[in-house]
Design a protein around this nucleic acid. Structure first.
Length: 575
RNA sequence: UGGGGUAUAGUGUAACGGCAGCACGACAGACUCUGAAUCUGUUUGUCUAGGUUCGAAUCCUAGUACCCCAGCCA
């Protein structure tokens, strides 16, 4: 089905490899780890996954797949204060939905706490770690700064036996939070601040979502992560650029313990125009009620994209297309949308829907007649078959498809002009009905019965084809028209005293209550994706039900007419 | 201004001493029962300055710009 096992990857081609794959290929050639490749995706369960995470886990899973290796899903749950079980489940669902399978390799850092504790004791015994009684503030002072080196803690050279004893008491909960910690004894003069006696364990009397109250000390990332990788036999530990400074520490711990040594390699995280990509900022959008939740269709979260109508294949292909490098970069949203349309065009059934209706009366059409006309479901995929659409005397067309003083280049309806109603008839507009404000409320047209199905036997051509639905043989629907959440390419670029919230797009969601869709959509269920002909791709919302249809606009079709219009508006007036 | 990184078209990404290529975008055209898709074409680039070399995006030297690091977060 919709998983990642189609041949999307570049195995057996001569395509150039990114720097990580190149190194792995080299490692295999040199028989490092007996030629084994084993990666992992290690999310912290403190929020939802977003498309930036998708870049990371698609990298890890696809590398494993390409090199005949494995990829683990591992929750890095070392901080009980911020983490929740609820996120664990959502994250698994997201990774699975994108199409990846960790098989039986679902792991939790918390499963290794006992082993980590033993290893910590070993470092203490080796004189490479010590319990420090400095307060967090004092620790900060001792650390020095970017320019000044740090100074050693007075507890640094306390007896090993004392550290061992204290460490056990820490574990047993005999000290309050923050009163002591375990530190690695490395080098307070190191130019790399991470090496200045980093904290390995802190005291945290908190209930962990998996280990409950078993522990009151919890390992820090730098101490824990390499051990987790090592325990699982990871060969290549891929992470983002900001951990490059931590690599010496990652290596140091593993070297001291003399255990299996994975390679940590760093790549640039994903940035996308017109959105933000940090859990903290996304959480702010949710908590500040700027969106309706983590799965708001405007959010760059996996669940948001899913609800909006993105397909797993589109996201996978995007992640593959953007490549992997170490340069900080920001991908143009247009590329994501390209990958989306590319996939949806090939896979979505077409359907007719009118989102901003204008009534049309076919004056020479029999009053109560209903005709069934054949329509193609997907011109890109013959196996998708055909369906019937229902034609009647009264129809809705898109308000945008009529113009009173239409320029020559406007190929749609105007008084005296003939267009094709898709799959139906040629019609010519004869009259315009207006209300007292001059607003067009209704169009009168005549149809040519000879053009049934959409072709004129006399060979006459018509420049425009527009979509329509019957007023009676259609269903009412609501459409959430989603647009970019932010007005600026870079939402972080703000005036003094402002932040990204000030760049929120006030029109990011317009709700269209008065839409009509063809009857074939009666039994649509949440998650179904369609192309509304000439409008764009839409997805049945999670809140949609029979009799109360709701669709989210995933992305519009490319629209060269709209572009033309905009160009004209912006162009300087001509003579 | 300590340390660690990174600079190739508008945006990404290749080229590993030998023709700067690809994708997206933009622009122009063809086709079209979706102003979609498809097809064709055009446009724009090696951070700067020196050096090595027959030949440099690639090697060397010196600059410049940007990113990351001073959580008992990850």
């Amino acid at each position: 089905m919709d998983n990642a096992s189609n041949n999307e990857t570049n195995e057996n081609t001569n395509e150039s490899l990114d720097f990580i794959r190149a190194e792995i290929a080299d490692d295999i050639k040199n028989n490092l780890n007996d030629g084994r490749v084993h990666t992992r995706f290690p999310p912290e369960p403190n929020g939802r996954l977003h498309i930036g995470h998708a870049k990371a886990f698609c990298l890890n899973f696809s590398i494993a797949k390409e090199f005949g290796g494995k990829c683990n899903l591992r929750f890095d749950d070392t901080n009980p204060i911020k983490e929740e079980q609820e996120h664990v489940e959502a994250i698994m669902e997201d990774v699975k939905w994108i199409g990846w399978d960790w098989e039986d390799r679902l792991y939790f850092a918390s499963d290794y706490f006992d082993q980590m504790y033993e290893w910590a004791r070993q470092l203490i015994k080796d004189g490479k770690a010590y319990v420090c009684d400095l307060t967090p503030e004092q620790t900060r002072e001792h650390r020095g700064s970017l320019k000044e080196q740090g100074k050693e803690s007075s507890y640094r050279n306390r007896d090993i036996s004392e550290s061992l004893d204290l460490f056990e008491k820490m574990k047993n909960g005999q000290f309050p939070d923050g009163t002591r910690c375990l530190k690695a004894k490395i080098d307070m003069t190191s130019p790399n601040i991470n090496m200045r006696d980093p904290v390995m364990y802190r005291i945290l009397h908190a209930t962990h979502h998996r280990t409950a109250d078993k522990w009151c000390i919890y390992p820090m990332y730098d101490w824990a992560h390499g051990l987790e990788d090592s325990i699982e036999g990871i060969t290549h530990s891929l992470c983002s650029l900001e951990f490059e400074n931590h690599r010496p520490l990652y290596d140091w711990f593993i070297d001291q313990l003399n255990i299996h040594h994975p390679k940590q390699r760093e790549f640039a995280r994903l940035n996308l125009t017109y959105t933000v990509m940090s859990k903290r900022k996304l959480a702010r959008l949710v908590e500040g009620n700027h969106v309706i939740g983590w799965d708001d269709p405007r959010m760059p979260t996996i669940s948001g994209l899913r609800r909006r109508g993105y397909s797993p294949a589109a996201i996978r292909n995007f992640c593959k297309t953007i490549g992997i490098a170490k340069t900080d970069s920001t991908i143009d949203l247009a590329l994501l949308e390209h990958c989306l349309r590319d996939n949806l065009n090939a896979t979505s059934n077409r359907v007719m829907a009118v989102v901003n209706p204008l009534k049309v009366v076919i004056t020479n059409y029999p009053d109560d007649q209903v005709e069934e006309l054949e329509a193609i479901n997907n011109p890109q995929d013959e196996s998708a078959g055909t369906r019937k659409v229902h034609f009647t005397k009264e129809l809705y067309i898109e308000r945008e498809d009529f113009m009173e003083d239409a320029p020559r280049k406007f190929f749609r309806l105007s008084v005296g002009r003939e267009v094709r109603l898709r799959y139906a008839y040629f019609v010519t507009c004869t009259d315009v009905v207006k209300d007292e404000n001059g607003q067009v409320t209704e169009l009168h047209c005549t149809y040519d019965p000879a053009t049934k199905g959409g072709d004129a036997p006399d060979g006459r051509k018509v420049k425009g084809t527009i979509h329509w639905v019957s007023t009676t043989e259609s269903l009412k629907a609501k459409v959430n028209a989603c647009d970019n959440l932010f007005t600026k390419e870079n939402p972080e670029a703000t005036e003094d005293g402002q932040d990204f919230i000030d760049n929120l797009n006030p029109d990011s969601l317009s709700v269209l209550e008065n839409c009509f869709v063809e009857k074939s959509l009666a039994n649509t269920t949440p998650g179904d994706r369609y192309q509304f002909e000439r409008l764009g791709y839409f997805c049945t919302d999670t809140e949609s039900s029979e009799g109360n249809l709701v669709f989210n606009k995933t992305v519009g079709l490319r629209d060269t007419w709209a572009k033309l219009k905009k160009q004209k508006q912006n162009a300087p007036k001509k003579k």
